[in-house]
Nucleic acid binder design. Structure first.
Length: 967
RNA sequence: GCGCGGUUAGCUCAGCGGCAGAGCACCUGCCUUACACGCAGGGGGUCGCAGGUUCGAAUCCCGCACCGCGCACCA
């Protein structure tokens, strides 16, 4: 064979070249544009009758860089989109980015810091202009990176959460919810980040489950009218005592009953505050006396409100103490103030005890700073009514025992268990703080009257404001980033306008995302969809596993343990591999670096986007986690694609070498077998895709390509290709046809390589006119029809073929066990068993290729019961041995070359195994309970099994006798 | 504290009521004209522990242990 230019395939897969070619072809064919364009016009070759299938991308932050979680999530989405597109749906994948309020503001602020510019001095408008400039320059990087991955988005529809249309959507929802009483403004104790100087929602605060080490200080508050007596208050935050407005005890706490209604003197200040009774106090905790600081603790705020106490705010925005504190403490950071306060208390003899204590300390998710509770005016979304509606849509109803699932919901989670996590959050939901005291974001569309305090809210500037602009000022705050994200599936398609896109593509089909934003995003999108359109924004929600490093730790930039998807695709030098670790400076940096050096002394050779994708899909099982290391991408993805590449080369070379025309032979048994297997593969792949079982998609395809196609069919085909022009043409047609199906099935997962291979295969098949009536219509694989999975399977044939495979393996084993040279050719006589009718015929049909695979000089087939053996194979022949199989007995003669002792040993082992199984089966069958209780089919199966085991045992004993006799 | 996952071969994971599986790693033999990123053969597991249900349990139920994740917070 020559691998002449006609084969048209490089000897080695070059991912970069294949990827570039892929994008060229897809783009010039506008392959990922929808049937109907955003203006409502059908594309020239489009078909508007195709049912839409829509995914909106979880918009990455404009500050983002592609990490493995993105790679996984977007691979999944692309697999789904490409699958449905090939299936004939009008597939739309909407790309876009998120303005990411706080993170972007922080990034740009740091840039300005580096230039020596103070953003506050720059002023709001100038700062925002700088952010837009930054966004123009860097904001699109992540989408470019997604393209490298092969993301088949309709890039014409790229959206940004701060686009004019999307911003109007934000204002529209704000206005609507405000008018419906679902958005309100109020003075509440909120989570405050002193670093970013803004309020945060509860979901943006993280608390270590075991708390953080701290102290519990017991402080004496002397009675105002009798300083010899005191109450001892226990607190973890002595510095907030300046904001105390009362001391509370439990009304039924006998120890303190006499103190209720009296007054104590607040240490370090001399202020006098009342002792109140409130059942919100835990008697068991600390001393049972709780200092009430309404401005700096949500629980205290509630108690304060119940008792009509005026909160006293003692802190500034940056968590330094303000002028409400005694002079000595003003301007001190809260932790300095704590040290000083404790010292002062001790000096005053008021510090009774200090005990170590684990404190449940909340930290801002983004800055990592400990949260300060701060009383301030903020905007909130009233979540209860929204959550109730969402719960009902998921089939929950509120009964005596609370919310319960009473019927099938409209939303399907995959894996299904996420629904209860979702529902639990909805049930326990609290109001959402949506105002942020930053500049980058959607400015709250509310105006305050300078005199009256009246509030005007409008999608556009309200008329009363326009009429007297000087009397009004717009609210300074911007909205939480998620306040635009929760509209994403609607707003990207044009809502609130009644656009053709919205009419056609909303609600979308599937949402794929990380479990980390189930509450932040998924739940809230449901709320917005239901509230504004009365529809859920998608039907299925897929939650992908969390990507972990090889030792089970979550990948993160700060740990330096991430595997960079772009390094996987393009490759990286040793220095490049080390860089993220060196930048992160984790505590185990040396160890990590040593590991990189040991595993990749010469760097990492890029495996390409397809190998990255295949690996991720193959490992994407329904568990909660996915452990990854750089080497996996080579082991799984690259190896598989190389195999596919080489198998395709084989097929293309075969196609090249057969006659251009001439009659096509009848399909041989192995042709029918591989077609049956390919059909099985197609239906399993479809089932797996339909049920979001991505690991199975990968596994099924891997097994089919490697084991069925390469290990068996290709090997058999080699013989047929040499046995005459008609058989060769038939074999080439099967090779090409099955490979074509395989490329179709693989395309959603490995789009670039399959598109490349398909182009060459199609050309070759056309030239030789071998499509056999199944020529794909589309030029591009990506727009070609996905195999429907309904092709015929011949299970009987597959069963017989398995016996044939066992025969070939059996001969190989025999040769290995007997210590024969691998190239020693044998003669074999195969006697059929009545248990598998048709096996003899199959074997006869495949005599030639089987002889080749098992290295046999001849294969004779005799019916059950056995015709006379040919000379030299009959009983008594020297060195005669047989392969005992449920479906046949194959005899051969090893002559003097065989190690009969080793074979005897082998037969003994086999007898041992068989004996154990025979005993357990017999025991089972003699158990009356089994006979009575088990499914009759199972009993029948066991009977058949026992018969077969007994039969094989007998034959093996006979063989053992012969081997012994030969001694 | 409450909830959700996980614990199966050295490693990564499938299997989820009726003979313990795959890939990698390991051992042996092969450069067989698609592929040594390969081919053929092989060894390797009391399915976390302890009970129960069942004729039968890796699989279902109840505890326990350990690992991971989420929610809550008694100041």
């Amino acid at each position: 064979m020559s691998s002449g230019p006609a084969a048209g395939l490089a000897t080695r897969l070059d991912p970069a070249a294949v990827e570039a070619e892929g994008w060229d072809r897809w783009e010039s064919a506008r392959a990922f544009e929808t049937e109907v364009d955003p203006g409502g016009r059908t594309r020239p070759d489009g078909d508007p009758r195709r049912e839409p299938f829509t995914i909106v991308i979880p918009p990455p932050n404009i500050t983002g860089r592609l990490h493995m979680g993105h790679a996984l999530n977007n691979t999944i989405q692309d697999v789904l989109i490409r699958y449905r597109r090939m299936e004939g749906r009008d597939a739309l994948w909407v790309p876009g980015t998120d303005h990411a309020g706080i993170s972007t503001q922080t990034v740009v602020r740091k840039h300005l810091d580096a230039e020596g510019v103070d953003y506050r001095e720059l002023g709001r408008d100038a700062f925002i202009a700088r952010v837009w400039e930054w966004r123009e320059e860097f904001g699109g990087v992540i989408l470019e990176q997604l393209r490298k991955l092969g993301a088949s988005c309709d890039y014409r529809r790229t959206r940004f959460t701060m686009d004019e249309g999307l911003s109007r959507a934000v204002r529209t929802v704000f206005k609507a919810l405000y008018d419906r009483g679902l958005i309100y403004r109020g003075k509440r104790v909120v989570n405050w980040c002193p670093v970013d100087r803004t309020a945060l929602s509860d979901d943006e605060v993280e608390t270590a489950p075991e708390g953080e080490p701290g102290h519990l200080w017991s402080i004496r508050y002397p009675l105002a009218d009798d300083p010899r007596h005191h109450l001892t208050v226990a607190t973890t935050r002595p510095e907030t005592l300046f904001g105390d407005v009362a001391v509370a005890v439990h009304p039924e706490d006998a120890r303190y009953r006499g103190f209720i209604g009296r007054r104590v003197q607040l240490p370090l200040t001399g202020r006098v505050i009342p002792v109140i009774a409130d059942s919100g106090v835990e008697r068991e905790f600390g001393t049972g006396c709780l200092k009430i600081t309404p401005a700096h603790d949500p629980h205290d705020f509630e108690i304060g409100e119940r008792h009509g106490l005026e909160p006293l705010n003692v802190m500034n925005e940056d968590a330094t103490l303000n002028d409400a504190a005694p002079e000595a403490f003003r301007g001190l950071d809260r932790y300095e103030a704590r040290r000083e306060a404790v010292e002062a208390l001790e000096a005053a003899g008021l510090l009774q005890a200090v005990t170590p204590h684990q404190v449940p300390l909340g930290r801002a998710q983004r800055s990592g700073a400990p949260i300060e509770y701060r009383l301030s005016d903020q905007w909130f979304v009233r979540m209860r009514p929204l959550a109730d509606r969402a719960l009902r849509r998921s089939g929950f109803e509120k009964g005596e025992a609370g919310w319960e699932k009473v019927r099938e919901g409209e939303l399907r989670f995959h894996p299904a268990r996420w629904e209860q996590v979702y529902a639990r959050w909805l049930i326990e939901i609290r109001d959402w703080t949506i105002s942020r005291q930053i500049w980058w974001g959607h400015r709250i569309p509310a105006w305050h009257h300078r005199e009256t305090g009246e509030v005007a809210v409008g999608v556009e500037t309200p008329a009363e404001v326009l009429a007297d602009p000087g009397a009004w000022r717009q609210d300074e705050d911007v909205l939480d980033t998620w306040f635009s994200s929760w509209l994403w599936p609607m707003s990207t398609l044009g809502w609130p306008d009644d656009t053709p896109d919205l009419a056609r593509y909303f609600p979308t089909s599937v949402l794929s995302t990380d479990k980390g934003i189930l509450f932040f995003w998924v739940a809230r999108m449901n709320f917005a969809g239901i509230e504004m359109t009365d529809r859920l924004p998608y039907r299925d929600v897929y939650i992908h596993p969390t990507v972990l490093d090889e030792r089970g730790a979550v990948m993160s930039k700060s740990k330096g343990n991430g595997v960079d998807p772009l390094a996987v695709i393009n490759g990286a030098t040793l220095a490049e591999l080390k860089r993220p670790v060196e930048e992160a400076r984790p505590t185990n940096m040396k160890e990590l670096l040593r590991r990189v050096e040991r595993n990749f002394p010469d760097g990492f050779e890029g495996v390409g986007a397809d190998a990255l994708r295949f690996t991720l899909v193959r490992l994407c099982s329904e568990g909660q986690e996915m452990r990854l290391s750089l080497s996996k991408f080579h082991e799984i993805g690259r190896r598989f694609l190389t195999k596919l590449w080489n198998a395709s080369r084989f097929a293309l070379i075969a196609l090249d070498e057969i006659d251009d025309e001439g009659p096509l032979g009848e399909p041989q048994a192995e042709d029918r077998w591989i077609v049956s297997r390919a059909n099985a593969c197609a239906s399993e792949v479809r089932r797996a895709l339909d049920s979001f079982d991505f690991a199975a998609v990968g596994a099924v395809l891997y097994r089919f390509v490697w084991n069925d196609f390469c290990d068996w069919y290709v090997e058999l085909a080699k013989v047929r290709l040499r046995s005459g022009p008609e058989a060769a043409r038939r074999t080439a047609a099967t090779l090409g046809g099955v490979l074509s199906d395989t490329l179709h099935l693989l395309h959603p997962v490995t789009p670039f390589v399959t598109e490349h291979l398909f182009a060459r295969l199609r050309l070759a098949m056309d030239r030789k006119d071998l499509w056999d009536g199944e020529r794909p219509e589309a030029d591009l694989l990506t727009r070609s029809a996905f195999p429907d999975g309904r092709g015929r399977r011949d299970r009987k044939l597959e069963e017989r073929f398995e016996a044939l495979q066992r025969l070939v393996s059996g001969v190989r084993k025999l040769r290995a066990d007997a210590g024969l040279p691998p190239d020693l050719r044998l003669r074999v006589r195969v006697e059929e068993s009545p248990d598998l009718p048709g096996f003899g015929a199959l074997l006869a049909e495949c005599r030639e290729p089987v002889a080749s695979l098992a290295r046999l000089t001849s294969v004779s087939v005799v019916p059950p019961g056995g015709a006379p053996s040919p000379p030299g194979l009959g009983p008594g022949a020297a060195g005669r041995v047989s392969i005992v199989d449920p479906a046949f007995e194959a005899q051969t003669v090893l002559g003097e070359a065989g190690d009969l002792e080793a074979l005897r040993h082998r037969v003994e082992r086999q007898l041992g195994r068989l004996g154990k199984e025979r005993e357990s089966t017999r025991k089972r069958l003699s158990n009356p309970g089994f006979l009575a209780g088990a499914d009759p089919a199972v009993v029948e199966q066991a009977r058949g099994r026992l018969a077969s085991l007994e039969d094989q045992t007998e034959r093996l004993r006979e063989l053992a006798g012969q081997l012994g006799g030969g001694r």
